[in-house]
Every structure is written in C-alpha cells, then in structure tokens.
Design a protein around this nucleic acid. Structure first.
Lengths: 159, 159
DNA sequence: TATTGTTATACTCTATAACTATA
DNA sequence: TATAGTTATAGAGTATAACAATA
C-alpha cells in the first residue's frame, strides 16, 4: 500500500465531480467503510513511516506485547491474515531482531512468539503516536461520537 | 479477493484465542474498520457471486447509472481507484457489453460512459439484493444504530 | 505545454498446495 | 491420521512511467 493519496486533477474535473449524484454510494455501508479504512491506512503510513511500522506489523507487535508466547496460528486468525502470509512477516521481524521464536516445551510443534527488547522499544515508540493519530483521523467527530463509532464497530463484529 | 473466510481451526487453538488480551486492538479504530470492511466484502462476494458483481464493479455501475456520461477520470477519483486500474475494468465491462464508451463532442479527448440495457439490467438485479445484504451485515445493530453508523462514516469523510 | 485516456509493467497483498516435524 | 509451522507459488489489487490524441 502507498502513503500517497490520489494526485491533484484539473479544476474542470473537480467541478464535474461535485455535481455528480453520489447519494446511492453514501448510503452503502460497505463502500463508506472502504473509504474510511483507506483514510486510516493512508494516514497511518504518514504518521508511522519514520518508525517503519505498517498497519499489519503494528497489530502484530501489539498482540505479542499483550500476549507473550502467542502462537503464529492464533495471531493469523485474530488479525485475519493467512498463516503463510503472516510467516513471511514474522521471518522479517525475527531477522531484524524485533521478535523471537521458541518452541513450546509441552508441544514441540508449537511456536511461541515474544518481543525482543528492540521490538518492545519499537512498539512503545509507536504507541506514543497512536493517540494523536487517531484524534487526527477522527477529528470531524466529537469525542462522544468517536466513542459511539468504536462501540458500533465492536458490536458489529464477533470479536 | 476471495469469497471464503478463514478455515476452521482446531478446538485448542480457538480456546487459546478466547483467553487472549485484545483490548488494545478493540480500541484501535483503523483495525476495527479493517475487520468491518472484510466482513462486508466477504459477505458481498457470497451474495452477489451469482450476478458476477464485485464491490468495485457494483460501485462503478451505480455511479454510471446515476450519472450517465461520467468520464473515467471522475469515476476513478470518486471510487479511489487509479485511472489505469479502472481502465482495465472498464475494458472488460465494455467487451462484455455492460457499458459503452463514446467521445465527448465538446472535447474529443474526454470519454463519456453509459450503461447498455444489459448493464442497466445487471445493476437493477444487483440493487434488489442490496437491502437484504446490508441488513444481514448490520444485523447486530438496531435500525437507529445502523443509521448512526452510516452518518458517522459520512461525517468522517470529505465526501 | 497541459489534459484525457490508455498501455505496459512492477510491486504488494492475499490465496492455495504441498512439505516437515511433531503429536 | 491430524496439527503447527513453513516454503513455494500463483493470483488479485494497486502503484508508477510513458505514450497517443486532443486541447
């Protein structure tokens, strides 16, 4: 995914768009969710680019931080990633020294994931950017509305 | 994108997940928006597969239907697609006989998009599936909450 | 020279199949 | 036989560069 938005277009094209009838899409929750997610992801790349974090690695770090020893299979299922795709990311995070893999003593097939001190530092730095970033993305809404939105999203999902 | 969800996993893995601490992600709007969008897209592929519609082609048909003559550049900007990627989809829709391209008389660089009767029939059939599909996706919310969610998403976006 | 549409192409994300090792 | 992890690989989706036709 890219950090850049769509490029600027000619004035005439922008004017043509303003006069279009978009009411059907505005009443389409799936389409509006896609736009909202794009906004959050594009904003994320801008805010967290200096740390090298992506939405995916951010979520991975958070879950391992709060659940040391979590296995890759649980992580993949929670984050809605296919296991082979998660493994590729974990390989990079481990070879960069952010996480460590070890085998479970009770079941030697199972892998236990933990953050290294370097990984813990990275997500701690990232966590400091999180609140201002979310505030910026949700700026058009009041604080009560922001809480409502988050509540409705949680209730929509089997999470 | 696939119509299938993640496969079923072993009981022990599911139990391990239930005991995980996910509160940080649940308070992360960008992550919850991603999950919500995945739910809508996966549900969409299930409901609209028989018609051959995807979320992208559905939105394209709706905008052309409500704005006959809309140019590809406006369409791409509205739907947050890059123009070259939209062009590929338009090529398929035109060669399948769903849309028609013609050159503007006032500016012969500009293309004007319209639905053929075949395309109009397809989106009319799709529109009939839309309300039950949205109701199913939003089932955990009351009707007032569904309206609130849509309103908050609209207000979050410069749309 | 700038704009619209288009082609070619590369890169990222996501998906499935098949393998290893443990149980 | 079944499960956890891994590798290899193919397929969407999305990105940029460069070109033709027109303004």
């Amino acid at each position: 995914m890219s950090a850049k938005g769509l490029g600027r277009r000619a004035k005439s094209a922008q004017q043509a768009e303003r006069s279009l009838d978009l009411r059907a899409l505005q009443r389409t929750p799936g389409f509006m969710l896609r736009l909202a997610q794009l906004k959050f992801f594009e904003g994320f790349y801008e805010e967290f680019a200096a740390l090298g974090l992506t939405p995916a690695t951010y979520a991975i770090f958070v879950v391992i931080r709060d659940n040391p020893g979590v296995p890759p299979s649980s992580l993949a299922s929670l984050l809605r990633l296919r296991l082979p795709n998660l493994i590729k990311i974990l390989n990079e995070l481990e070879s960069s020294g952010f996480i460590k893999r070890s085998r479970s003593k009770s079941d030697r097939r199972a892998v236990e994931l933990v953050l290294t001190p370097k990984g813990a530092k990275l997500i701690a730095d990232g966590a400091r950017l999180t609140e201002p970033y979310n505030r910026k993305m949700l700026a058009p809404l009041s604080e009560a509305e922001q809480r409502t939105l988050l509540d409705l999203l949680n209730r929509m999902l089997p999470f």
